[in-house]
Design a protein around this nucleic acid. Structure first.
Length: 648
DNA sequence: ATAGGGTTAG
């Protein structure tokens, strides 16, 4: 594709243009077209840019080195066959424009955008005189493609070759540090930027990148320290610290910061910030707090004359994520001018609750109402299919996405498809799909396959997937855990111990299981074999009684649901499952057994079959609805059955 | 006279 990039002679185009009067005219009109196309692109109107480019061609003009970078952006943004990246590439080689480092940097970026990073690399390799911008494009390209280690490699390579990184390079590499969760490296980038005078006071973007990096490396202390010292903050900065607190810090801090931002009244919250804060309620299944933030959101939207649609969309999302699908649907039905986001939010809400059919229905209604789906809404509906075990429907949608809507599938779509097949037990199809993918599969693709290999006990494919996933991140504890469970499930205890030993040597620990529940305005958290709680004796007694009742009631706690099998007893006693959700449930029953209304429990790991069965039974004998949220979806237990139909 | 790389998060 990119052969012989270097032997084309540099065309002295400006000289020939000056020598020929006709061409001077051509040059002038190219200039104005180039400028107009550029303007449309940067103001977010790629269609207008395309119209201008069409006129440009109709006048018999040919793209030059100034046109090509814009064309590449256009090519990526519109995804139209009339402007094809590889054709432009061939053209650039033929005309010699590829010799121009600005043009070639554009191609490097284009290939990165399509996830085709080996093409980017090859091109980079063929460029002899590399400048900071090209190096930075490599650093950011790799990090955007989830290859943080390569991104960091390129930074050290450029340092070795004596190219001094600038503030943009460092901002890019910080994103990689976040991905890799390498706090120490992030800190040294921070120090480097100060020592070398790259960081200057009030560089909001770079400072925000530090805040974000520290938060994502799970160090909220450093993150807050940088944030607190910032003199200027924009909405991205606030977003970084608030979502940081939501994800890895404390909900209280997130809420406090949100209030502070509102009080300061200098920065309008982004819809993503609102959604993040609302997620605090989703995370703790705490509706009361959600309503409080709802109030803030309403006031903020009123003040800024923000379209109330943004607010409604965030609220629908909040209710769906808090497990209150009914409120979400009610709100959704009352929104008059539903936009693409409204529909997508509702579709993913249905998906999370395992209602694949409803998600499909909403998707069709959306199309009928004249709104065309985009890539994101396809992700929502595809994952709904995957959770609803609707393999054929999902496949049809995937085909239609490309055929009818000309949407090029991206890594996330590929991941949905792999999950769609694998979750339904079609492991070979999932593997076949991965092999046929036009881009190199990312870590998550292999992780998706791996987790289904565990469910369906496929050791061979599981080992393979784990190996692939670990080539991206050797320190991914989740991968080792899944692999060890696969071994445990098939009785391969030696292999199991080996993986665990290996983990220990790498200093990796399994995630501690945690469940939480809100009772009387307080959130109680339960971890494995929790004896600290003053109620623990009562809790364990109640669980024992319930277990006996279950056995008498003919509930086989070893029955496997949806292909999920229980891990062995040793495993249950370790920190893998811990049945913390059972502790939480027993606690609620003891504290407020007489109450009615649904019990909402949250959990940081996927629910195991044993707990799932118990919850079904308990919902029946106590005649209460139980809503259990795991990281992926909701389970709604009612009268002895769950809305997931034992498939999750 | 025109062009290439950056922070959120979905």
């Amino acid at each position: 594709m990119l052969q012989n990039g270097n032997w084309f002679p540099r065309i002295p185009c400006f000289l020939s243009l000056l020598m020929l009067p006709q061409l001077l005219i051509k040059h002038q009109s190219s200039y104005s077209f180039n400028s107009i196309i550029r303007t449309h692109l940067s103001s977010g109107h790629p269609e207008k840019a395309l119209t201008n480019f069409t006129q440009f061609k109709e006048q018999g003009l040919l793209p030059d080195n100034f046109t090509i970078p814009s064309l590449l952006k256009l090519c990526f943004e519109l995804n139209q066959p009339s402007i094809h990246g590889e054709n432009i590439h061939a053209f650039a080689i033929k005309t010699g424009y590829l010799q121009d480092i600005i043009v070639s940097t554009g191609f490097v970026e284009l290939y990165f955008n399509y996830g085709h990073f080996s093409a980017s690399y090859q091109l980079f390799d063929e460029i002899s005189e590399r400048d900071v911008v090209l190096w930075t494009a490599m650093v950011s390209g790799f990090s955007h493609n989830g290859l943080g280690d390569q991104s960091v490699n390129f930074l050290s390579r450029m340092l070795r070759e004596g190219i001094k990184p600038n503030r943009i390079t460092l901002t890019s590499v910080l994103a990689a540090c976040s991905q890799l969760m390498v706090l120490n490296l992030g800190r040294s980038v921070h120090g480097f930027s100060i020592r070398n005078g790259i960081f200057k006071a009030d560089d909001v973007v770079l400072e925000t990148a530090f805040v974000d990096m520290y938060a994502k490396c799970r160090n909220l202390i450093y993150s807050s320290r940088v944030f607190d010292r910032m003199r200027e903050r924009n909405s991205v900065s606030w977003n970084a610290i608030i979502t940081g607190q939501v994800n890895y810090g404390s909900s209280e801090a997130a809420l406090r910061l949100f209030r502070e931002m509102m009080y300061e009244n200098k920065t309008e919250p982004r819809s993503s910030t609102l959604a993040s804060v609302l997620q605090v309620c989703g995370g703790t299944t705490d509706l009361r707090r959600g309503r409080e933030i709802h109030g803030h959101a309403v006031r903020s939207c009123r003040r800024s004359n923000l379209d109330s649609l943004v607010e409604n969309n965030a609220l629908i999302d909040m209710y769906a994520k808090s497990g209150d699908l009914n409120s979400a649907v009610l709100l959704f039905q009352n929104v008059r001018n539903k936009n693409l986001v409204t529909w997508t939010t509702m579709i993913s809400g249905y998906g999370m609750h395992g209602l694949g059919k409803e998600a499909l229905k909403a998707f069709d209604e959306m199309k009928k109402s004249g709104i065309n789906p985009d890539g994101v809404s396809f992700i929502a509906v595809l994952s709904a299919c995957s959770h609803g075990k609707l393999v054929d429907e999902g496949l049809q949608l995937y085909i239609s996405m490309q055929r009818d809507y000309k949407i090029q599938p991206e890594m996330k779509h590929f991941a949905c498809m792999v999950d769609l097949y694998a979750r339904s037990g079609l492991l070979e199809q999932a593997f076949g799909f991965i092999e046929k993918m036009p881009v190199e599969p990312s870590e998550f693709i292999w992780a998706a396959l791996l987790s289904s290999c565990r469910i369906y006990k496929n050791v061979e494919l599981g080992e393979n997937a784990a190996k692939k996933a670990l080539t991206y991140d050797q320190y991914n504890a989740g991968v080792y855990i899944l692999l060890s469970r696969i071994y445990a499930d098939s009785g391969r205890w030696e292999d199991f111990s080996m993986v665990r030993l290996f983990m220990k040597e790498l200093g990796l620990k399994p995630v501690t299981a945690r469940s939480w529940v809100e009772v009387e305005r307080k959130v109680y958290t339960f971890t494995v074999r929790d004896n600290l709680n003053p109620y623990s004796k009562k809790i364990y007694n109640l669980l024992e009684t319930l277990k006996e009742k279950m056995e008498k009631g003919g509930f086989d706690s070893d029955r496997s649901g949806g292909g999920h099998n229980n891990i062995s007893e040793e495993e249950n006693e370790s920190d893998l499952c811990g049945h913390t959700e059972k502790l939480a449930l027993a606690f609620v029953l003891i504290k407020c057994g007489g109450h009615q209304g649904p019990i909402r429990i949250g959990k940081n790991l996927r629910v195991c079959t044993d707990c799932h069965e118990s919850f079904k039974f308990i919902s029946k004998i106590t005649n209460r609805e139980i809503i259990l949220r795991d990281p992926n979806r909701y389970h709604q237990f009612k009268q002895g059955s769950c809305n997931c139909c034992d498939f999750w």
